[in-house]
Design a protein around this nucleic acid. Structure first.
Length: 554
DNA sequence: GCCGTTTTCGGCCCGACTGTTTTCAGTCG
């Protein structure tokens, strides 16, 4: 059974091949469909079985038919025909930095070059020298790109998990604030939209002195190489290979620029076409009626000029949020300050009484009313662990004054291991590893009251695996914890849980180091899912609450 | 190929930067 990722990759390749053939709008249509398919919360075959392929943004009748054909036969003759028509090597050429479809096509048509190796040979033979538009610099640029691609075959395009990008973004932002004549510094792009992975960082700065900003940025220890530098933007590579774009704008354009550089591309295109319909023009400098700038200092001004409410960045994918804003039906998204309960907190087994006291103080400072602490469990290597009696009594001593403290045990699904049955606990946290159990029956045995499942790295990269756990959580009355893992399918699970009415559990950041991105990333994923405050479980049922009774099957 | 407060056709965002140019094409985001 082909995965969603397989289908998306195929449509992307189709787009590339059509690019080389000189098609104007089809490539973007296929890419848009690929992006939508990638973000589905369930397998394409399920959507197809319900005959709902056309509801996927960017999928019309022609692509829907291709999906059906691909799902039922595992092949797509249209794709195979294109691959036959266009040498595969041309797609490799097109994906080199600085080369695009037009150039790849010219090499193919004018020189008979069908791939990187042949292009290298053509350069060596001087066959590019006589081509119009190819001077020494351009040829050298291509030669370098070819050499780099040969050294790192798949390299360059890998996206970074957002949780890994957080500390990097933080360091760059604070570095710019400290060293440059920067007023506002904001990270835009897919980072601001809290996508699971980021391909680069887009950093927006307002300043009267762009040169100083660029100098300060280039001097940061993380920066390895400046790729290009103009009057308003600089592009650099970091030592870890991540690309960073820094753009400087004037304050009067900050909102328009932030909107533009936050994207997504589809969201921007949609907004700009609405502006055009109204005789307006949106660019990164503002919103214009004719020559006159009528707004752009804030994002609200730009949205407002189109009659729209401000749309949270996490929703800007052109998956219906603009229509919702038009109707005034944007969801109210959960915010950090809504999180008054922490359901899943680990203490070190060696935590002292002082550590526990500090933790409780942190919880009160954050105005938490509920704190669930794991007092015993099974570690990854299968060994049981539990908190010391000193820590436990410190916890008990900290209860009250508006803070309820509960005890949780954590283990995989199924019957509790014997060592954990002795542990006095108010609820149970279930680690979601592998596939969900066929029957939830065993989980209901014994004292556990509430379950919080969370996704481990071992979950196979299929939306249906995450979906299976979410459905299991619904059956047993559990909330689904949203963690910070691109590979753990947290974002997919959050969207599916939200859509099927299963509550989410989020981390508050209590007890965590200030630079721990877990809480911020998980909150972003929940917001991307459209979750509001009422979709989040903030506390477990009371310590002595009756066990949930099995209900008749739905 | 998709899509519709211009819906079954005719549009499809917009500008910076580079290298090659003498006014622009291609790439990128």
């Amino acid at each position: 059974m082909p995965s969603n990722a397989d289908a998306a990759e195929m449509f992307r390749t189709i787009a590339d091949l059509l690019d080389v053939l000189g098609e104007k709008f089809k490539p973007e249509a296929y890419r848009r469909a690929a992006r939508s398919i990638e973000t589905l919360t369930e397998d394409l075959s399920k959507v197809a079985a319900r005959d709902e392929l056309r509801t996927i943004p960017g999928v019309g009748e022609a692509i829907a038919e291709k999906i059906r054909e691909y799902l039922s036969t595992g092949r797509l003759p249209y794709y195979e025909r294109l691959k036959h028509e266009v040498p595969a090597g041309l797609v490799d050429l097109m994906r080199l930095p600085g080369l695009g479809p037009k150039t790849a096509r010219r090499f193919w048509v004018d020189l008979g070059v069908e791939g990187p190796a042949e292009l290298e040979a053509a350069i060596a033979q001087g066959r590019l020298d006589s081509m119009k538009g190819f001077g020494p610099k351009k040829i050298e640029q291509i030669r370098t790109a070819l050499a780099e691609a040969r050294a790192a075959p798949s390299g360059g395009t890998a996206r970074m998990p957002i949780e890994a990008a957080f500390p990097i973004a933080e360091r760059i932002v604070s570095g710019l604030r400290a060293r440059a004549a920067a007023d506002a510094v904001e990270v835009a792009g897919s980072f601001r939209r809290r996508r699971e992975t980021v391909g680069d960082l887009d950093i927006l700065v307002t300043s009267e002195e762009p040169e100083r900003v660029f100098d300060a940025f280039s001097a940061l220890p993380e920066v390895r190489e400046v790729r290009l530098r103009g009057g308003t933007k600089e592009t650099a590579l970091l030592t870890n290979g991540l690309q960073v774009d820094v753009r400087v704008v004037e304050p009067a354009a900050f909102g328009a620029a932030l909107l533009y550089f936050t994207g997504s591309k589809d969201h921007n295109v949609h907004l700009r076409s609405i502006a055009r319909e109204r005789g307006l023009k949106i660019n990164e400098y503002g919103i214009f009626r004719g020559e006159e700038r009528i707004g752009g200092r804030t994002e609200e001004e730009v949205y407002g000029s189109l009659g729209l409410a401000w749309i949270p960045p996490e929703l800007r994918e052109d998956h219906g949020e603009i229509e919702a804003a038009t109707r005034g039906e944007l969801p109210t998204l959960v915010r950090g300050e809504d999180l008054t309960g922490e359901l899943h907190l680990h203490l070190s087994p060696t935590a002292s009484k002082e550590d526990v006291t500090r933790l409780l103080e942190d919880a009160r400072r954050r105005r938490l009313t509920f704190l669930g602490v794991v007092v015993g469990g099974v570690s990854d290597d299968g060994r049981p662990f539990s908190l010391s009696t000193a820590s436990l009594s410190a916890l008990d001593a900290g209860v009250g004054r508006g803070l309820e403290v509960a005890r949780a045990v954590e283990a995989e699904a199924g019957a509790l291991p014997p060592a954990l049955r002795e542990v006095k606990a108010d609820y149970r946290i279930v680690r979601a590893t592998g596939s969900p159990p066929e029957s939830p029956g065993k989980v209901r045995e014994g004292p556990p009251i509430l379950l919080v499942s969370h996704f481990e790295a071992k979950v196979p990269p299929s939306p249906d695996a995450a979906r299976g756990w979410v459905e299991w959580a619904r059956t047993v009355g559990a909330a689904v914890e949203v963690g910070p893992g691109a590979e753990r399918l947290d974002s997919t699970a959050a969207r599916f849980a939200r859509d099927s009415g299963v509550p989410l559990a989020l981390r508050t950041g209590v007890g965590a180091p200030a630079d721990d991105p877990t809480a911020a990333v998980a909150l972003g994923f929940a917001r991307r899912a459209g979750a509001g405050p009422s979709d989040v479980r903030l506390r477990a049922p009371g310590p002595r609450a009756a066990p949930r009774r099995p209900t008749a099957s739905r």
